[in-house]
Amino acid sequence: MILEAVMLQVKQGMEEEYEDAFREASKIITLMKGYISHELQRCMEVKGKYLLLVKWETLEDHTVGFRQSVEYQEWKKQLHHFYEPFPTVEHFKNVPL
């Protein structure tokens, strides 16, 4: 399992509109091969800052399967105009303890 982590900064004053758009766009990602789950967290200290966490079966399910899909184009259309600056996406793998 891979965890995709993205710190998002939404343009000032667009937070409510973004959250509504994200709820709608969430329907897209849930249908993708390798998708496990996702959550969006709102920062309590910084207005407009969010943390997106998505669990994928494999790295390629996200980087190839989702990112190179037609569905991703719709995801971009619905969400990318809210971000400033554009976020960096990072992937993590669990460390057995």
Score class of each variant (00 low, 15 high):
2 I>Q: 03
5 A>N: 13
6 V>G: 01
9 Q>L: 06
9 Q>A: 11
12 Q>C: 05
13 G>C: 10
14 M>I: 00
14 M>F: 09
17 E>W: 04
17 E>T: 12
19 E>K: 11
19 E>L: 11
19 E>C: 11
19 E>V: 10
20 D>N: 08
22 F>W: 04
24 E>Y: 05
24 E>F: 02
25 A>E: 04
27 K>P: 00
29 I>S: 09
30 T>Y: 05
30 T>P: 01
32 M>W: 02
34 G>F: 02
34 G>T: 08
34 G>S: 08
36 I>H: 09
36 I>S: 13
36 I>G: 05
37 S>W: 11
37 S>H: 11
38 H>C: 07
39 E>V: 12
39 E>L: 07
41 Q>V: 07
41 Q>A: 09
42 R>C: 12
43 C>H: 08
44 M>D: 12
44 M>S: 10
45 E>H: 09
46 V>F: 06
47 K>N: 04
47 K>F: 05
48 G>E: 14
49 K>H: 14
50 Y>I: 03
50 Y>K: 07
52 L>Y: 07
53 L>H: 00
53 L>K: 06
54 V>F: 05
55 K>F: 04
56 W>R: 02
59 L>R: 15
60 E>L: 05
60 E>H: 06
61 D>V: 00
62 H>N: 04
62 H>Q: 08
62 H>A: 04
63 T>M: 13
63 T>L: 14
65 G>H: 02
65 G>L: 01
66 F>Q: 01
68 Q>F: 06
69 S>A: 05
69 S>W: 07
70 V>S: 12
70 V>Q: 15
72 Y>R: 00
72 Y>W: 13
74 E>S: 03
74 E>G: 01
74 E>A: 08
75 W>E: 04
75 W>F: 14
76 K>G: 02
78 Q>N: 03
78 Q>R: 15
79 L>I: 04
80 H>E: 03
82 F>A: 05
83 Y>T: 02
84 E>T: 13
84 E>H: 15
85 P>W: 09
85 P>R: 12
85 P>I: 09
86 F>V: 01
87 P>F: 09
87 P>N: 14
90 E>W: 04
92 F>E: 03
93 K>Q: 09
97 L>T: 09
97 L>M: 08
97 L>Y: 07
97 L>I: 14
